[in-house]
């Protein structure tokens, strides 16, 4: 079972996911191709084994959600919640992604070559996200751990109520959210950024870490301040 092909015109998402969940033996690391996704939801969600999945076309909601170990390539655009709650592995979207990409991901790497919609990396819990284009408003909202690299611009309220996740932005930031601030890039930031761009693929090698800004939490929301009058 080296190369396995599915066609969503002939086989349902449920059947394909059932195969991906139960029929792949550990250590075999097969390559699976899925044709004609046509925006269906939940394609390749809940994988928990080392394998390579290539989806040829646009996917709907929650593609590769909860991913563990697998490497999923979407040759098209992704709907809401791609790689949401990913635990490990790699999810690569060649096109653009809709809202809440990589939401609450605990681990793994999500790469979006195009733009990401609003709330990219919301509540991120340790995963890494690299976006080749721009991200929409409220990205990295309440992100707790992990890194988000934005090679384009960021929308309004970036990093609102950030915890310990770090955001790197190359382009323009429309506005920062409450408690998010621009900080100086350290040597560690340069190394982390270089490593993430390398992992994202050769097309990211044109970006230089020195062109990015570091956004992190000012931590003033960590403790309740009755005198702040809701202004942070």
């Amino acid at each position: 079972m080296e190369n396995i092909k599915f066609d969503l015109k002939a086989t349902s998402v449920r059947e394909i996911n059932k195969f991906l969940h139960h029929e792949i033996a550990d250590g075999t690391a097969p390559k699976i191709t899925i044709e004609n996704p046509d925006g269906a939801h939940n394609i390749a969600a809940g994988l928990n084994v080392n394998c390579e999945v290539e989806i040829r076309g646009h996917v709907g909601y929650y593609a590769a959600g909860m991913n563990q170990h697998a490497s999923v390539l979407v040759n098209g655009n992704a709907g809401t919640g791609v790689a949401e709650n990913m635990m490990s592995g790699r999810v690569h979207v060649r096109g653009s992604a809709s809202n809440s990409a990589g939401a609450s991901a605990h681990g793994g790497l999500l790469i979006i070559d195009g733009d990401a919609g609003l709330r990219c990396g919301i509540s991120l819990k340790g995963g890494d996200i690299v976006v080749g284009g721009s991200v929409g408003s409220f990205s990295a909202f309440m992100a707790q751990a992990g890194r988000i690299v934005i090679c384009g611009n960021a929308g309004a309220a970036l990093g609102d109520s950030l915890y310990e996740a770090v955001v790197y932005v190359k382009g323009h930031i429309k506005s920062l959210g409450a408690d998010a601030r621009v900080e100086d890039m350290t040597v560690d930031d340069h190394q982390a950024l270089e490593s993430l761009l390398n992992q994202a693929g050769t097309s990211y090698s044109t970006h230089r870490p020195s062109d990015f800004k570091r956004i992190a939490s000012a931590r003033s929301l960590y403790h309740w301040n009755a005198d702040a009058n809701q202004e942070y």
Binding site: G39, H58, G60, N77, G79
Partner: peptide, 8 residues
């Protein structure tokens, strides 16, 4: 609302 209504 979603791409699945445009795919055809």
């Amino acid at each position: 609302s979603e791409f699945r209504s445009l795919a055809h």
